Amino acid sequence: MSTTFRTTGRHGYGIKFSPFFPNRLACATCQNYGIAGKGSLYILEETPSGLLQSVSISDWTDGLYDVTWSELNSNIVVTGSGDGSVQIWDTGNHQHPVAVLKDHEKEVYSVDWSQTRDEQLLLTASWDKTVKLWDPQTTVLLNTFVGHTSVVYCCVWAPVLKGSFASVSGDGTLRVWSTQNPAQPNLTIAAHDSEILSCDWCKYDKNIIVTGATDGQIRGWDLRLTRQPLFQLTGHTYAVRRVKFSPHVDSLLASVSYDFSTRLWNWKVSPSALHVLENHTEFVYGLDFNAHVNNQLVDCGWDELIQMYRLHLPPNT
């Protein structure tokens, strides 16, 4: 079962469910496939009848490539832009950002708000090869993490390890960092022989991270044994743009790809996809699970479509 919303004239890049409201989500989009033009932030809600409707649309002068919600304030959303800036939006006053963070020299491709208790910090990753750490409440830049030798496509906080995050890059490495040591990562893994576009941390095991790359491969890594992947999932025929672990089932994850598909996997059971969803006619870029609703996920793509799914999976999938 799926629900469709069209971002007419805007191509989807990033999408995220609200951590506060089960029926609300945010989508970061660009004009002209992100090559040129403006960007727009869509705030959407699922109606009682199951349809998606627009609550607000906020425009920025450049493309918006990723989005994350505040874990502190239900109205605050953060986006990363092609002009190297980071926007903090208040959805109750959506015409202009309440703050703009500027320190990256190139496109900001990933933004993530920390999820551990008592730690309200923001990560941003950029094509300038750096990851930056911010205090989003004071808008102060706290640290810059340097080490990747190519574009940093994604950065994600550890869900349970305070002060830890992971990043992946065009240099083919997965790196695990501590916020206390910006000089060098705690761990570097040569995870793929190609550009790595996405990573995610398992919500149930602090030692497991998954990566998705331009070689079409999805690989899982046990941070205690990094000489070879814990698992490898095959089936995508083009680059894997984003990977996400389920917040409800430890062995379930999802991925989206330039092959126009969204796939679900049970990495403990099979290297082949559990489900293949083919509802897009262009690259699929954004992906997220709903932490409030079991087996609900959403994606967005360059075909101007947001697709929200309610999947009927067998128990203990």
Rank of each mutant, 00 (worst) to 15 (best):
E46N: 09
S261T: 15
I218N: 02
S272F: 13
I88V: 15
T144M: 03
S74V: 02
G220Y: 08
K102Y: 02
W127Y: 13
L264H: 09
Q87T: 03
H236F: 06
W60C: 03
T47S: 09
Y309K: 01
V249T: 14
R310L: 11
G84M: 08
K162D: 11
D288Q: 07
R175H: 05
G286V: 00
V256Y: 01
S251F: 04
V298D: 00
T7M: 15
L25P: 00
D103G: 06
K129E: 11
G172K: 00
L287E: 00
Q296H: 10
Y42I: 05
L277M: 14
I306V: 15
C154K: 03
T47W: 07
E107C: 06
G14D: 03
T116G: 02
T317D: 02
G50P: 04
N295P: 05
C199D: 04
R117V: 13
F17H: 05
R242F: 02
S74T: 09
V111Q: 00
S49V: 03
L52A: 05
L142W: 04
L51K: 14
G37S: 09
I306F: 12
S54E: 15
L187N: 01
S255G: 06
L122Y: 12
L122G: 08
W69L: 00
F289K: 00
F283G: 00
S270D: 15
N23T: 09
T234Q: 14
V240S: 12
W89Q: 03
P271V: 11
T188I: 13
L253Y: 05
L264I: 13
D135T: 10
K206D: 14
L311Q: 08
F231C: 10
A166E: 05
S85A: 13
P182T: 07
T130Q: 12
W177F: 05
G163S: 06
F289A: 01
L174T: 00
S126H: 08
H11F: 06
I209F: 04
W265L: 06
L305P: 01
P247Y: 07
W302M: 12
D103A: 15
L161S: 15
D250M: 09
K106H: 11
L197M: 14
V100E: 12
E119T: 13
S2A: 10
S114E: 05
T317P: 01
D222S: 08
F245M: 02
L233H: 11
A26Y: 07
D135R: 08
P22T: 06
E107Y: 11
S246V: 10
S81W: 04
D205H: 13
F283R: 04
H148Q: 12
G235L: 09
T7I: 03
N75W: 03
I218E: 07
F260L: 09
V256T: 10
N316S: 14
H248D: 04
K268M: 11
V284G: 00
H236R: 06
K268I: 04
V176M: 08
T173F: 05
C300F: 09
S49A: 13
T262M: 15
D259K: 11
W177V: 09
F231T: 09
P185N: 10
C155V: 12
L233T: 11
D112V: 00
C199V: 07
Q87K: 12
N266C: 14
R219C: 14
R6I: 14
D62V: 04
W157L: 03
L123K: 02
T317G: 01
A183L: 11
R219D: 01
A166H: 06
W221E: 05
D90L: 07
A190H: 14
G147M: 06
K16D: 00
T144I: 12
R242I: 02
E195H: 14
F231E: 02
